[in-house]
């Protein structure tokens, strides 16, 4: 069964190659995580996540809310396995598909079809699986003849369609998404929502970070607020509204 179990997760970013003091000045409150001012040697540390705990099981659709720099993306990337914890632990069971960056592993000069192969390979699919699914991906993306064109000719919405189609066809157990769906048109949003609902019904886990609260409420059944890297569990939609109003 797919599961995510995060315990006391703290992630600190060493900030290399930036002027210590000017950086401190830039990172004044309201935006960003907590900056550790006590350390004397080494690069300045930015605490992106601070003691975050989270447990998700099959069928959970978690919505992440918080200001820019509150730690939403960092948490998503940590679940995806890109960041190792400085404290605490991350345990993820199941194959993870992430839509954190639309162009991951895509080559703008290659065609849509070639990019399907590249991206699917990156997600760990075998050549046979890719061959079997290419048609389904092509169909869902509704890009038709554009799949033979280089991706650099695509609009942002078309790239989103392509990426979404590949990632959701990969049979992952956990799907991570970071505020992106806005680029799709109404028709695509509707289809994407249907597909996600179907995925989650098949006991998958979905984690979605967004500032679009209508979308969040529509897509998710659990919410987690983040503020300066710390997590604030939100038990109901009412609490979510409160959090949004006060934060």
């Amino acid at each position: 069964m797919a599961s995510i179990d995060i315990r006391g997760l703290t992630i600190r970013f060493p900030v290399y190659g930036a002027d210590h003091r000017s950086l401190k000045r830039q990172l004044t409150r309201a935006v960003g995580g907590a900056l550790d001012r006590k350390r004397k040697s080494g690069p300045p540390l930015l605490t992106a996540l601070n003691d975050v705990s989270l447990k998700l099981g099959p069928g959970d659709r978690l919505g992440l809310v918080g200001h820019n720099g509150a730690g939403k993306t960092t948490l998503l990337r940590a679940i995806a396995g890109a960041y190792a914890p400085d404290e605490g632990s991350i345990e993820v069971e199941g194959r993870v598909a992430s839509l954190l960056d639309l162009m991951v592993g895509m080559d703008p000069f290659a065609t849509g079809m070639e990019n399907i192969r590249l991206r699917a390979l990156l997600m760990g699919l075998s050549d046979k699986q890719i061959k079997d699914r290419a048609e389904e991906i092509a169909e869902f993306s509704a890009l038709g003849p554009f799949l033979g064109m280089p991706v650099k000719t695509y609009s942002a919405g078309m790239i989103a369609r392509l990426a979404f189609s590949i990632v959701t066809t990969a049979d992952a157990d956990i799907l991570l998404m970071d505020e992106w769906i806005g680029v799709g048109d109404a028709d695509f949003r509707h289809q994407a929502q249907l597909r996600l609902t179907k995925m989650v019904e098949g006991s998958k886990i979905f984690v979605f970070a967004s500032h679009d609260f209508t979308m969040l409420k529509k897509m998710c059944n659990k919410f987690l607020g983040l503020k300066g890297g710390a997590c604030i569990p939100l038990e109901s939609e009412a609490e979510l509204d409160d959090f949004v109003a006060t934060a």
Binding site: G81, S89, I90, E91
Partner: peptide, 11 residues
């Protein structure tokens, strides 16, 4: 069995 990915703090 699903792939399991576990990472803890630096040991």
């Amino acid at each position: 069995r699903l792939p399991r990915h576990y990472v803890a703090a630096r040991g």
